[in-house]
Design a protein around this nucleic acid. Structure first.
Lengths: 165, 165
DNA sequence: TTATCTAACGTTATATCATAACAGTCAAGG
DNA sequence: CCTTGACTGTTATGATATAACGTTAGATAA
């Protein structure tokens, strides 16, 4: 199984368009320098791959591309770069899909929720402000000290719903 | 790795105590009969195993127990029973842990959030009413037709926080 | 400059999680 | 009785993820 959505010229959900890629990469590099993190060639390329992808990519999807470009060909190469990006807040892991996606709002300290379309496999990062607040509240009520959360919704995006009518 | 929390006589979080197991099983059976679903021996036993476990169990943890008791010894045996229970609303899948847990409130049409303790591996099912409402709202704002959602929080439960002080 | 140190890379090997496909079993209904 | 369909169990394989270790390359100190 590949997790990559079809690049058929039609794009369901709003995502980081190619036009933004360069800007986000530059911002990522600036941010990395500032924090002492090293955005190495593999890591940079993985971020680029995620930014250019429609939908989320599995680690092995990423690995395949890396391998074809002369980077290492074994799973740890992809997983290490992906985990680095997640740690840096430059990417998110979508557990429901066993996949990764570039962060749409890097640099901002935000909690995200993901809207996963079952029709076109697109993954949209939604603002989870209110959801997060409610979850904080629920955790507090249970006496639970919340560190971080995964919020993933599955359904159909607006474009696909329109198309289905 | 095993996903089962230690059964050390100390239990961090409130969970389905042994006293409730019989009652929940009976309710599950009644419900199954009502809907035409068949709570067969394997399925019933898997539910029982989940109910008695502290924390969530991986499919292979469950399989090991089944196998030791004379049921089938191959992965599909566990996965089929677990998926049945999830479909029936008798169990939940915790994606973050690649594990399953018995539903604390079977029969009620509820949306659940899970509070996962990193110290003791306990998994508590919290009421996700408000969280769910906020998520519905966020989805609506994005024009997304929400079918179902995964809400999983990671942190430290109250008992472990107390113990750590 | 050169020696040294460390983070990152790439590899081999293996662990862990999950499902496809098919054969045998058994209870319910014709 | 016989068919039917749901369930169980099996073999086999696929998909996801990490441990461990040697090598490389960039930074730092001498």
């Amino acid at each position: 199984m590949t997790t990559q959505a079809q690049d058929n010229g039609f794009c369901c959900a709003d995502h980081s368009g190619a036009a933004n890629v360069a800007a986000i990469l530059a911002a990522a590099e600036a941010r990395a320098r500032a924090t002492g993190a090293r955005l190495t060639p593999v890591r940079r390329r993985v971020l680029e791959i995620l930014l250019q992808a429609h939908g989320a990519l599995g680690a092995y999807d990423v690995l395949e591309k890396l391998s074809a470009e002369g980077f290492g060909s074994q799973p740890p190469v992809a997983y290490r770069a992906l985990n680095f990006l997640v740690d840096q807040g430059l990417a998110h892991r979508i557990r429901r899909l066993n996949a990764f996606t570039a962060c749409a709002h890097p640099g901002q300290d935000h909690r995200a929720a993901f809207l996963i379309c079952e029709s076109c496999d697109s993954v949209t990062e939604a603002d989870a402000g209110a959801v997060s607040a409610a979850l904080d509240q629920a955790a507090k009520a249970a006496g639970f000290d919340l560190a971080r959360a995964t919020i993933e919704a599955v359904g159909q995006c607006s474009a696909c719903r329109e198309a289905a009518r």
